[in-house]
């Protein structure tokens, strides 16, 4: 049972502007029956003022897909094309009083149909998904570009959010790691571009005395690793250092997380290699008690 707002239910039960405009000036089609939802948008446009005089939709999909389509047509009528092109999926969702997280892809579909229709009017050929960048999710035909774009627009940091917004990863699941890598790259680059972060980047030195190394490891744990684990309700404890072998113990939520070994290798070790020394190996200390 979805927790739909009254506005979503209203637009589902009483959809505005459904149907097809004959001799439409612009047509935008997105989705497919196989994917479970599809939207065909037709527009009547005033050639002089570039104003959307009328908009109609046809939608195959669930309640929130139909409501998102209906809402989008209501929003764009009377707008000029430049204004309409600036509408985001978040605004469609907001118009409806919000959508359940798993249904955000419905608002994305509305936004995409609008983009496609405007591009169609302006004579820009809509490129096939495959050409818009590398195909990441084969089940739902989602490209790297789309994932990057939506992550930045909607401030998405988790794979699950990407699935909710794009469906990518919601089928066979083979691309979940790929999506994580894309997100890591998106937010890592973003950070590097931003002015120096508050946490000073510990300088990696080649020859460290043992004391310097211990200090650097502790600093990296404190400033780089721990804040990130804390966000997920976890923590990390430094147990021992034996030359380049670092023994740690995951605490809190991380300690019984099924992906704890993944966390150790792909996050903790990567960071310590980056900040302390490329020779570092991180091992999880097994609880003896």
């Amino acid at each position: 049972m979805w927790n739909y707002t009254d506005k979503v239910l209203d637009h589902f039960h009483n959809p505005r502007n459904y149907g097809e405009i004959e001799n439409a000036d612009a047509v935008g089609e997105v989705g497919s029956m196989a994917c479970g939802d599809a939207l065909r948008l037709t527009l009547k446009i005033d050639k002089n003022t570039q104003t959307i005089l009328d908009a109609k939709f046809q939608t195959f999909g669930c309640g929130s897909a139909i409501a998102s389509s209906s809402a989008m047509t209501e929003m764009i009528k009377g707008m000029n094309l430049d204004e309409a092109n600036k509408i985001t999926n978040a605004e469609i969702s907001k118009f409806l009083g919000g959508l359940p997280p798993e249904k955000m892809h419905c608002s994305v579909m509305g936004k995409e149909a609008l983009e496609a229709a405007i591009a169609n009017y302006r004579g820009i050929t809509i490129e096939k998904d495959e050409e818009e960048g590398r195909l990441v999710c084969r089940c739902f035909g989602v490209t790297e570009d789309k994932i990057q774009k939506l992550a930045l627009e909607n401030n998405l940091h988790n794979v699950e959010d990407i699935t909710n917004y794009t469906k990518a990863g919601g089928g066979c699941g083979a691309c979940l790691q790929d999506i994580q890598d894309i997100l890591d790259a998106v937010w890592h680059n973003k950070k590097e571009k931003a002015p120096a972060a508050e946490a000073p980047k510990p300088e990696a030195a080649k020859k460290l005395t043992m004391v310097q190394k211990v200090k650097l490891i502790e600093e990296t744990l404190e400033k780089v690793i721990r804040p990130s684990l804390n966000q997920d309700g976890g923590d990390i404890e430094l147990i021992d250092i034996d030359k380049n072998k670092i023994y740690v113990k995951l605490l809190g939520m991380c300690s019984h997380c099924p992906s704890s070994s993944f966390t150790i290798k792909s996050f903790v070790e990567t960071k310590l290699k980056e900040f302390v020394s490329p020779d570092i190996e991180v091992l999880e200390e097994q609880a003896n008690d």
Binding site: L9, F12, H13, G36, D37, F60, G61, C62, G63, A65, I66, E102, K103, C139, F140, T163, K167, G170, G171
Partner: peptide, 27 residues
């Protein structure tokens, strides 16, 4: 699509289910 059918049936108090993606929470 099945979820839309179920939502409209629900208005009449009719309870059924669907094999559609949207009702399962999966995609």
């Amino acid at each position: 699509e099945g979820e839309s059918i179920l939502l409209l049936l629900d208005q009449h108090g009719i309870c059924a289910s669907s094999g559609s993606a949207c009702t399962s929470g999966s995609l």
